[in-house]
Nucleic acid binder design. Sequence first.
DNA 1: GCTATTGTTCTATATTCATCGAACAATAGC
DNA 2: GCTATTGTTCGATGAATATAGAACAATAGC
Lengths: 126, 126
Amino acid sequence: MRFVYHPAADELSLPSVLYALSDPIRLQIVQALSESGERPCGTFGLALAKTTLSHHFKVLREAGIIAIRTEGTYRWNSLRRADLEARFPGLLNAVLTASELDAAIAVHASQQTAEAEFAFEPVGRR
Amino acid sequence: MRFVYHPAADELSLPSVLYALSDPIRLQIVQALSESGERPCGTFGLALAKTTLSHHFKVLREAGIIAIRTEGTYRWNSLRRADLEARFPGLLNAVLTASELDAAIAVHASQQTAEAEFAFEPVGRR
DNA sequence: GCTATTGTTCTATATTCATCGAACAATAGC
DNA sequence: GCTATTGTTCGATGAATATAGAACAATAGC
């Protein structure tokens, strides 16, 4: 538990970042970090095993989305806002905004029946 | 080959969209669609089996990122820019911008040795 | 009707991933 | 040194995924 490796700012890859953000739990973590700043892993109130949480934090860290700072037995996580902004301008903000919207809409949608799929009619149909 | 189902604009989920965009091949497809507008599946110059391409287009379509229009034996794909913008403002543009930057940097990086990982030094280290 | 073209569905396979329990590592406080 | 706390690493497991070959569907053109 001595050193933790992080990718350098110019080494982040877009697919890795998008993949790391494509999991609902990891999105929750990122959103919480965005709202309340630096936090230890165990303070996110997620009903998951410690090992599972550790896995998600590792994915986020190796994608370059969060940085981890060790202090005593705690590990403080924070968003690498500046690095992400330099490499992928606007991306984090767009995701965070969408995530908030998404959460709001999810709450609203759960009060309705949600089976409204539709089809584009192909031009050459009959 | 009659109807193709697409999710409605308000049914798109952020994790699904981010996941669909987290694959390099699908990113390439989206970028190509962004630059050259509507195109049939077979015109992207990707060295993959037809079935694999079909799979990737399906993932993009079911995530709500592209729409497909049938005309004769062709299927014309297009970006659902407006729907994405309404649901996830700024996201597509951020991804497209980052994707272009990423490609440019990848070309540049391939001309160098790329082993510059570094570590954040934990505060309590010795 | 026959053939060529475009793309999908079905099935299989190898890989990756999310989850978790058990054991371990590092530190704080006594 | 001993114990509690925080988090990681190591396996294991079941699910999801990217890939592709074979067969099929729909259409255009003859």
